[in-house]
């Protein structure tokens, strides 16, 4: 394996050849090559099974990373690999889960620590209800206004003549012919 460790050209050439032999390789534990320029790549911890835990992800999805990136903790720690805040918050989530807190309690603990701004959406209580309800209140108000306006318009419309007057009464044949020609002029 060591011949593959650094050589760029060999690796790229080998990638085609490997396509033919997709068999599983023995996992090599000791002979992982070092990068020629390790500084050009962010250093990362090994992923543990808990990093992929759906519950952990769900909790982290509800909280904002405090580094100023505007992302939630999960997205930040799996996207912005220069951020040190989100991995720290991730470890804190794991620690709090370990101390037998429920997910809601974990989130509440973060809120107590950092304030409401740490939550990705305002918690539904008190004044924050305004955030959630205003759009639907607007929809309701709009529907009421629209209903009233439409009722007024429909009532105000000229009453349709009770019996259709057949052909427009009082029109001369000449005028009707003119109308027919005008209609033909309009492309349809």
């Amino acid at each position: 394996m060591s011949h593959r460790s650094l050589s760029v050209a060999l690796l790229l050439a080998a990638s085609g050849a490997m396509a033919q032999t997709p068999g599983p390789r023995p996992p090599s534990t000791d002979s992982v090559g070092r990068l020629a320029a390790p500084g050009a790549v962010q250093s990362r911890e090994r992923v543990t099974a808990r990093d992929n835990d759906l519950l952990v992800k769900a909790i982290e999805g509800r909280m904002r990373c405090t580094c100023g990136c505007n992302l939630d903790v999960f997205t930040c720690r799996t996207t912005d690999f220069t951020c040190t805040t989100s991995p720290a918050m991730h470890r804190l989530v794991l620690a709090r889960l370990d101390s037998a807190l429920t997910p809601d309690q974990v989130v509440a603990a973060f809120e107590a620590q950092y304030g409401q701004a740490v939550l990705m959406a305002p918690p539904k209580r008190g004044f924050n209800w305004a955030a959630y309800l205003m759009p639907f209140a607007g929809l309701g108000a709009g529907l009421v206004v629209l209903g009233l306006v439409m009722r007024r318009w429909v009532r105000a419309r000229p009453k349709p003549s009770p019996e259709p007057a057949g052909e427009a009464a009082g029109a001369t044949a000449q005028e009707l012919e003119r109308l027919r020609r005008e209609l033909e002029r309009i492309e349809s």
């Binding site: 003549s161 259709p164 057949g166 052909e167 427009a168 029109a171 009707l176």
Partner: peptide, 9 residues
């Protein structure tokens, strides 16, 4: 039709 015919006329 009768209404718009009247209007057009």
């Amino acid at each position: 039709r009768s209404r718009y015919t009247e209007e057009a006329l």
